[in-house]
Design a protein around this nucleic acid. Structure first.
Lengths: 208, 208
DNA sequence: TTCTTATGTTGACTATGTCAACATATCAAG
DNA sequence: CTTGATATGTTGACATAGTCAACATAAGAA
């Protein structure tokens, strides 16, 4: 997995290590995935790349910046998966619920990564413009899908952004409870299905 | 605010400091509230109580145990507020939504504390039996309320626990997005209101 | 009074993030 | 090709923090 010299064939030839920034990000993400955010130390990720402990500071302002970059990648991946689900599902009601499934599964499959995105490790407002952009992009995927369903009179005509936030809150809530261990193991998938169903109909007693 | 000797009049007279455990908890919570979880250091909270840095270890196994205790207190407070809202609201539909309001407001008013409860700082499964108990207690308040509404045919007859988890996910999601700064400032309260409304009716287009 | 146990303290160790000073590779300009 | 500027990477050092071991002391029991 060492960066081969052949990679330098591309236009901008990297300097010493060969895209250390990319390597740092990958290594950080790998560590986060396998050992959790707490286990992430700058020294070890440097060591793993055969680089000194402070080499990282040439590519990231500090540890938080690194985490912000990791979060950014998370939002990008999430958006891609959401859009893919929407397209593959046929851009209808079923596709919309498929997005919900994908969302929750993303979180459950990458709990630590998801936590970096939402666990207060990074501030979405200040600094990190790219993070804000990507986060907004992921949310936009949801807004777009909802707008389509509204156009087709499948969903209520409420303010789209507001409705999208609600949907987001639902899947986010399910995901968070799931990765927090607040739910019995098999309950996450089940709750997700149920949530997507009730999201559509509500929990109030049918008046028909 | 120093512990007065008069406090020792109670049955079990404390040893040296006079209920240091309680003091540690209060000080930890105060620090968490004002400066956030990251700013919580064992050394400083000890200093603030005029006690050495390791005195804490006679009352808590380690820092995580202290955080677990803080989380426990959070769940207890949350449950009390939920129950109070339910009772005061008349144990009906309105009272139920009042619980939702209280829940989200608790999180928004105590973001750092809430994060200790749900931010992965403590593991609800392992260790800390009291924490699990209190967390379950808070959830039970929700289950009980829902069961009542089901009995009165105000809510659907679905599995109560499953439905309660869904409701929990909704308010938890709104709360989390709110304290994460993912929503524009005034949007939290607005989203909460909207969420409670749509929670009842769903977002699907009315077929009537 | 004495023994035991509950508390609290001191010193020390390790791990970690970060900065400053230094070293070196790459590229652009002449 | 040399030279200077800039981008990268390294070493040494420091401050902070959590934690443990050894020691000290207070409280209650015998």
């Amino acid at each position: 997995m060492a960066v081969s010299p052949r990679a330098t064939r591309k236009r901008r030839r990297p300097y010493h290590h060969g895209n250390l920034r990319r390597g740092l990000l990958d290594e950080a993400l790998a560590t986060i995935r396998t050992e959790g955010v707490d286990a992430l130390t700058l020294r070890e990720i440097g060591a793993r790349l055969g680089v000194s402990r402070t080499a990282l500071y040439r590519h990231f302002a500090d540890k938080r910046a690194l985490l912000a970059a990791v979060a950014t990648e998370g939002f990008r991946a999430l958006r891609e998966q959401l859009v893919a689900a929407w397209e593959a599902g046929g851009r209808g009601q079923a596709a919309f619920e498929s997005m919900g499934v994908v969302y929750v599964r993303f979180a459950v499959a990458n709990p630590s990564h998801y936590r970096v995105m939402f666990g207060g490790f990074v501030d979405p407002d200040t600094s990190e413009k790219e993070l804000a952009t990507e986060a907004a992009g992921a949310f936009q995927a949801l807004v777009d899908a909802l707008a389509t369903l509204q156009r087709d009179a499948i969903m209520r005509g409420d303010d789209t952004v507001k409705m999208a936030r609600f949907v987001w809150a639902v899947v986010h809530g399910v995901a968070m409870l799931g990765i927090d261990g607040q739910l019995p193991e098999p309950a996450v998938e089940e709750l997700m299905r149920y949530a997507l169903e009730r999201l559509r109909t509500g929990i109030g007693q049918d008046k028909g």
